[in-house]
């Protein structure tokens, strides 16, 4: 897209874009570190994730303030307006992603006593990889604003849902095998849910990017394959 006649406006939009990329990078790192800390019982790393969340919170606030000042000053129209509103929404999604990473990090201490069984650890790591790939790719799409790629990412959330459901089932099995596993498994269940939500936020971001690029909402329901809500139900 061509530049603005007022070059200062371009600078403001660039600033917002840069801050979103920074937030995305940090949120991604936090989530990866949290899972790493969880499976390795690394409480120092967990502590770092917890303290990093403040940086993310501040970044969101700064983006918000800058966006509001820009709207007031420039009275943006059309694609500019969509971009700034989209930036606000993406910043909020990334802030939530940070919170989810932080929540996982907080659980490291609780599961430290028993440790995380190797098999479950692999499942969590795999789920986390899937979510973080979504997040990473959606941030790349944010940089190049491709509606097509945003739509493609939106379609892929299904995979994470399916993985989450299988992990849920596995955790149930462990708990049934030995009640002493319940504490750890319950925490891990929350962790898995948190990770699955990270994928949801990535999907939200993909939808926002689609809107920024086209001015329309993506058509159709999000593909979902999360059947954990009915898992264990007694079927007559």
């Amino acid at each position: 897209m061509s530049s603005h006649i007022m070059s200062a406006f371009d600078e403001e939009l660039k600033y917002l874009n840069r801050r979103i990329s920074e937030m995305g990078g940090l949120a991604e790192q936090m989530c990866a570190d949290a899972v790493h800390a969880l499976v390795n019982g690394d409480s120092a790393l967990a502590q770092k994730v917890i303290s990093d969340d403040v940086i993310l919170d501040n970044a969101e606030r700064e983006i918000q303030e800058k966006a509001i000042v820009t709207i007031a000053k420039r009275q943006p129209m059309a694609a500019d307006l969509r971009e700034i509103i989209g930036t606000l929404r993406i910043a909020a999604d990334l802030e939530r992603v940070g919170d989810l990473g932080k929540n996982n990090a907080k659980r490291v201490i609780a599961v430290q006593g028993t440790g995380v069984p190797r098999k479950l650890a692999r499942g969590l790591e795999h789920l986390s990889e899937l979510s973080l790939v979504q997040l990473k790719e959606v941030l790349d799409v944010f940089a190049n604003r491709s509606a097509q790629k945003a739509e493609a990412i939106r379609q892929r959330d299904e995979e994470i849902d399916a993985m989450y459901t299988s992990l849920f089932r596995e955790l149930l099995t462990y708990m049934m095998e030995d009640p002493r596993n319940i504490t750890t498994c319950t925490h891990l269940l929350f962790c898995a849910k948190n990770i699955e939500r990270i994928g949801d936020h990535a999907t939200n971001i993909a939808e926002t990017i689609y809107y920024i690029a086209t001015g329309a909402q993506p058509q159709g329901e999000r593909p979902k394959d999360d059947s954990s809500n009915t898992l264990g139900a007694v079927v007559e």
């Binding site: 603005h4 943006p76 500019d80």
Partner: peptide, 19 residues
């Protein structure tokens, strides 16, 4: 018109961009 115009020239004009 002011959120998602159809024409590129409208787009550039209302956003204050170089045509």
């Amino acid at each position: 018109m002011f959120t998602n115009p159809d024409d590129q020239r409208t787009q550039d004009y209302i956003m204050g961009r170089f045509g």
